[in-house]
Amino acid sequence: MRSRHVSTVIGASADDVYEFVSEPDNLPEWAAGLATSEVVRRGDDLVAESPMGTVTVRFVPRNTLGVVDHDVILPNGATVHNPLRVLPHPEGAEVVFTVRQLSMSDEEFDRDTLMVEEDLARLKALFETRPTRMR
């Protein structure tokens, strides 16, 4: 199984980026690879429409370490653990997402990686093109 670490540096504080990324209601704004609709809360679970179908998402509790790991329960019942970190960076914040190949073909793995790159670029643009909105 291969892994790829996809990252971007955002010109905003790590605390501000973490607060935005760790808020499930913000997922449709930046994480199109995961949520293409409003997120519905069912207890600690979040349910969203995704390119894969209806998924359930479970985030780790909010913390001071910038950890936004989350499990995604796919329509077929499989659970995928997604490591996600927001780290302080000399230029603001670095967001790092680990993509794991698991049982995907090389083409699917490349497509997943590209979707994560696009999501992180969308997140960066939200902060850097509309900074007053993100405060």
Rank of each mutant, 00 (worst) to 15 (best):
W30C: 08
A32V: 11
G33R: 03
G33H: 13
L34A: 10
S37D: 08
S37Q: 01
R42M: 04
R42N: 11
G43Y: 07
G43A: 09
G43M: 06
G43H: 05
D44M: 11
D44T: 14
D45M: 08
V47F: 01
A48R: 04
E49Y: 05
E49N: 12
S50D: 03
M52Y: 13
G53Q: 10
G53A: 05
T54W: 01
T56G: 04
T56N: 06
R58S: 14
R58Q: 15
F59D: 04
P61W: 11
R62K: 15
G66C: 01
V67S: 10
V67E: 12
D69T: 05
H70C: 12
H70N: 15
I73Y: 04
N76Q: 12
N76R: 11
N76G: 10
G77V: 03
G77I: 03
G77E: 08
A78H: 07
V80C: 03
P83K: 06
R85V: 10
R85L: 15
V86N: 00
L87K: 10
L87I: 09
P88Q: 05
H89E: 11
P90R: 00
A93I: 01
F97G: 00
T98K: 01
V99L: 08
R100D: 14
R100S: 13
Q101R: 13
S105E: 04
S105K: 00
D106I: 02
E107Q: 11
E107P: 04
D110T: 08
D112V: 13
L114N: 14
V116N: 02
V116G: 02
E117G: 07
E118I: 09
E118C: 05
D119I: 04
R122N: 11
R122Q: 14
L123H: 06
L123G: 10
A125Y: 04
A125D: 11
L126H: 02
L126G: 10
F127S: 05
F127G: 02
